[in-house]
Design a protein around this nucleic acid. Structure first.
Length: 292
DNA sequence: ACTATATCCTGTATGC
DNA sequence: TGCATACAGGATATAG
């Protein structure tokens, strides 16, 4: 599942391949992949012709190709989206949904998406930052992150801490894999209410999350299968560094206890039952009212 | 305002 | 062997 490290790996690969290129042709082979474009697939393709890409940017799990005219092509990979940079004539990978060719580069850019939770859209005036993602918070690797404000926002929430980590309007870029890995490093249970944690504990959790994301990025992301690969089809290799995600029944790398898998928020959560015990509400001590 | 859930989608794995 | 079901989960719409 593409989360921040995977999206950033793809962003960097795209920037190396398509920056300074002008779009020559656009072929949409499945309308769902451009469902957020109001004018439909034909209008989407037509509107992109001749645009020159200046750079490729990212915020959280969104990325966008900025155009010289100030607009942008906004993309989200969803569960299974990929960008592939191929040679013309290379057979298209299965589930290729949109294809681009360029006026000068001898490459074809393909948006591939098996499950089609992802998609592409044209963002008017979005080159610096698309208005469509104004609600997406800064991520833990971004320069404009306000650490203290983030901690304050989290400590005010009553939701389980994992739900908060996954809320892209609080902090962006974290998905199920890195949420579980961060919580394991911080020895926290996923359902512990955020407002039962001290600010320093939350800050520590965020430092762990930042470290996990950075390490995964350095490894090129996490590839479980062919659903996440880089723009040249290469796998990331952070999977071997995962402590808990997908490892139910295997020993916790810290204490040896078997990792468990439990449903939470309609998806799987992985934790060490010994390092990350369920949070118990402190028994409120009988309030002796002195005056009585 | 805040919190939680239903929904979208398809290839793969598992169960009977 | 074949068919049915479960599962993977990011973001959004909707409900409470």
């Amino acid at each position: 599942m593409p989360e921040l490290p995977e999206v950033e790996t793809i962003r960097a690969g795209l920037e190396r391949s398509v920056a300074q290129q002008s779009i020559a042709t656009v072929t949409v082979s499945h309308p769902r992949s451009v469902r957020r474009h109001p004018g439909g697939p034909e209008d989407f393709a037509q509107a992109l012709l001749g645009r020159t890409i200046t750079q490729v940017s990212r915020r959280g799990k969104y990325l966008w190709l900025a155009f010289a005219d100030g607009d942008a092509l906004l993309a989200h990979l969803g569960m299974s989206g990929q960008f592939r940079v191929d040679r013309p004539g290379d057979p298209p990978p299965p589930n290729t949904r949109v294809e681009f060719t360029f006026t000068t580069a001898d490459i074809v850019l393909r948006f591939v998406d098996q499950r089609m939770f992802g998609g592409l859209s044209l963002s008017g005036g979005g080159a610096a930052q698309p208005a469509e993602i104004a609600h997406i918070a800064a991520d833990l690797l971004s320069a404009d992150l306000d650490w203290d404000a983030l901690v304050a926002k989290i400590v005010a929430k009553r939701s389980g801490i994992k739900r908060v980590l996954l809320d892209q309007t609080v902090v962006s870029g974290i998905g199920n894999i890195y949420a579980d890995e961060s919580l394991w490093r911080a020895r926290l249970h996923y359902d512990r209410p955020a407002n039962t944690l001290s600010s320093s504990r939350i800050s520590g959790l965020l430092e762990h999350a930042q470290a996990v994301l950075g390490e995964a990025l350095a490894a090129g992301g996490t590839s479980f299968d062919a659903l996440y690969v880089g723009v040249a089809g290469e796998s990331g290799y952070f999977e071997r560094s995962l402590a808990v995600y997908g490892r139910q029944g295997l020993p916790c790398p810290r204490c040896g206890t078997a990792i468990v898998r439990e449903p939470f928020m309609g998806r799987s959560s992985f934790r060490c039952p010994k390092c990350q015990p369920r949070y118990r509400v402190e028994p409120s001590r009988p309030s002796r009212v002195e005056a009585l």
